[in-house]
Structures are given as C-alpha cells and as structure tokens.
Amino acid sequence: MRHIAVVEDEADLAENCRAALMRQGFGVSVYADRPSALAAFKQRLPDLAIIDVGLGAEYEGGFDLCRELRSLSPAVPIIFLTARDSDFDVVSGLRLGADDYLTKDISQPHMLARVNALFRRVDALANASQASGEQMQRGELLLDMDRMCARWQEVPLDLTVTELWILQALAKHPGHVKSRQQLMDAANVVLDDNTITSHIKRLRKKFIAVDPAFDCIKTAYGMGYRWDT
C-alpha cells in the first residue's frame, strides 16, 4: 500500500483529503505542522507528499519542508497544494523540486488523477527496463505518458504533470489549435487565462533551455495554441 503524507494545517481540508485518498486505497498520514511532519519523514519516507505552503505560523513552512524532504530523498514526488496562486509562488515551489503546484480549489478527481500520474512516473522510473507502452513521437519530441516523461532531441525534459498534460494535448494533433479551455481540461485544472499563459511560457522556456531554436508551440491569437512541427 502506497503511503501518502498530507501536510496541511487546515484540519477539515486535511481530513477531506485523507478520506478521498483512502478511498483510493492509499495509506494517508496527516501532519498539521512542519516539525511533526519532518520528524515523521525522518522515521519513514512517504511515497508521495502533499504539502501546503503556509503551515500555521510558518508562512513559508511548506517550502522549507519541501527543501528538507528533497534532501532526505531526491525521488519522492511532492505536490504543493496551496491557496497561493501567484506566479512567484509557483515558480519558487517548482524550483525547490516539487513535481506539481496546485491551487486548493482543484477538485478531488483532478488531484487524484495527478497523484496517480505521479505514481505512474515513479513506477516507470523504477522499472526502467520495462518496455514502454504508450509512446508518442512528434518530430524530435518523444512523449511517454506511461512514464510521464518527455524528451526533446533525446534529452529528457523536467516537466510537471500539468505541463506534460498540456504538452500532450498540444502535440496529439499537430497544427490543431487548442483553446485555453481545452488545455485546462486536458491538464485537469481550472485556471484563469493568465495562468495558462504562464504555463505555456514556462513550457517554452524548458524546451528552449534544451534547444534554443525550439519554435513548435505557436500562439494562435484569440484562439489558443497549437503544435507545429
């Protein structure tokens, strides 16, 4: 049984989360603050951690906890679940090594989908030898949705689950314009337009970091984005 740690100071939310996860057959531990969570992590690493950024009196306790957890284990998937939705917070969270950054109004099915996706990625990494199932090749892009990973020119890209889903939605039908709403649906999120724009921007940057000549994600003004090869 996979074990998920939920670090959340809002007791009701934590319990709801625990209930939803347990219904899925996960073992769940709930911690209300950073020290207790850290103490538990040192005893035993969870298989996945869902962390709130603001923890009680510690305004950025979640970030600190994420950093400490990363130092304990570089592989444990970490999801930030927070009320803070500014770009700055998102970027800070992801830079600390979180696998995804979600705002609290995400629905449970969406969250569970993400948790499952992350576990899938962990499994795939663990069984590297296993033959890949669902793979998608678009020019120099290689998408493996089972392993939840993407490669550009054979170089692995470090994408969050949300980004991966967006990329998948775009690349599935090259040349087709995907509206923001379609991208949100594909990424299992409900966001405002600006956040989608930021996601696309980050996605482009990650490609450009690998290949400065990257120019496949096109903006169709007024409609959305499309993948051009």
């Binding site: 709801n16 009320a83 099915p109």
Partner: peptide, 10 residues
C-alpha cells in the same frame, strides 16, 4: 472554499 469543495467531492 477548498474545504467545501473537497467535502462535496467526498
């Protein structure tokens, strides 16, 4: 709102 929504989901 998150409490409400997650409760509704449950």
């Amino acid at each position: 709102l998150a409490v409400v929504k997650s409760s509704l989901d449950n």
